[in-house]
């Protein structure tokens, strides 16, 4: 059974939703992000989203844009991110890892080779922000062949008939972008989220997680109850980035700050 499925099955038994913290690979350097990745499960991450830095993250707000820039400055490449996950897997064989990023680095790498290498690194799923179902046949067959889940994104703007069509072949889980907007800006209300989940659950049996605009423990608690999981990205990165020195380098406070944030989110989700 895939790690993603095993994880959601287990959480269902526990009767709670998942916490999916996000980290930007190589932000602000390789060692710090590897250390953070390694300690995230113990701090309460059920699944982890690893952001692949891209020069032009057009769906992201300022916080993740800056994180991506720091990651690139620290030498992040798609290959480098796969190596990072490979190292993480030496110590952890159960926490699902979802790569999140934009299509061009994958396209440049070569889709077939990328899917092979991602599997070899024990990646579990892929979220490619700018690869909608209309274009995903470029990548999906290769991902499927390597047992990687292509996570389908849905949005408030996705009409019901389209939801049905795009979720027909979805696997792993479904990601609901809970606002019309970019990462780290505004938040959906509880009622909006409830209405969306009713629509989504009518279209799929897969777990549905909510992301974009979830920043406080209280928001994470609510989102993880209404849906099957809460993705938190900008709020963690923002707290951590506030600890960097004037050159944007990590300090002794960086790692504990990010882990504290994840712990408080996890407590709320489990509470």
């Amino acid at each position: 059974m895939s790690r993603i499925k095993a994880c959601f099955d287990r959480l269902k038994k526990e009767g709670r939703g998942a916490l999916l913290p996000y980290l930007e690979a190589f932000d602000p350097d390789r060692e710090t992000s590897l250390a953070l990745l390694r300690q995230m499960p113990e701090a309460g991450a059920d699944l982890i989203e690893v952001g692949v830095p891209f020069s032009d993250p057009s769906a992201d707000g300022p916080t993740i844009q800056l994180a991506a820039q720091r990651g690139l400055k620290a030498g992040a490449t798609l290959k480098g991110v796969l190596d990072l996950i490979h190292e993480f897997r030496k110590e952890n064989d159960h926490t699902p890892i979802i790569l999140m990023g934009y299509y061009n680095p994958i396209d440049r790498y070569g889709v077939e080779r990328f899917c092979k290498d991602a599997r070899a690194a024990d990646v579990d799923g892929l979220i490619v922000v700018d690869l909608p179902p209309e274009e995903s046949e470029e990548l999906a067959p290769y991902a499927r062949a390597e047992g990687l889940d292509m996570i389908t994104l849905t949005a408030p703007t996705t009409p019901d008939d389209r939801l049905k069509a795009i979720l027909k072949d979805a696997s792993g889980f479904v990601y609901y972008v809970s606002i019309t907007g970019i990462t780290g800006t505004r938040s959906a209300t509880e009622d909006q989220l409830k209405a969306a989940m009713t629509r989504l659950k009518a279209a799929t049996d897969l777990p549905v997680v909510a992301g974009f605009g979830i920043s406080t423990p209280e928001q994470a608690r609510i989102a993880s109850r209404i849906s099957d999981g809460a993705v938190v990205a900008s709020a963690i990165i923002k707290d951590m980035a506030a600890t960097y020195d004037e050159h944007g380098h990590a300090t002794a406070k960086s790692l504990p700050t990010a882990l504290d944030k994840i712990r408080s989110l996890a407590k709320a989700v489990r509470g």
Binding site: D130, P132, E134, T154, T157, P159, I166, T180
Partner: peptide, 20 residues
Amino acid sequence: ERGHFGIHGGRFVAETLMPL
């Protein structure tokens, strides 16, 4: 009909924008 000129073109946008 899907906006391709040879291998080029297409609609590589986030799902939020796709219905638009």
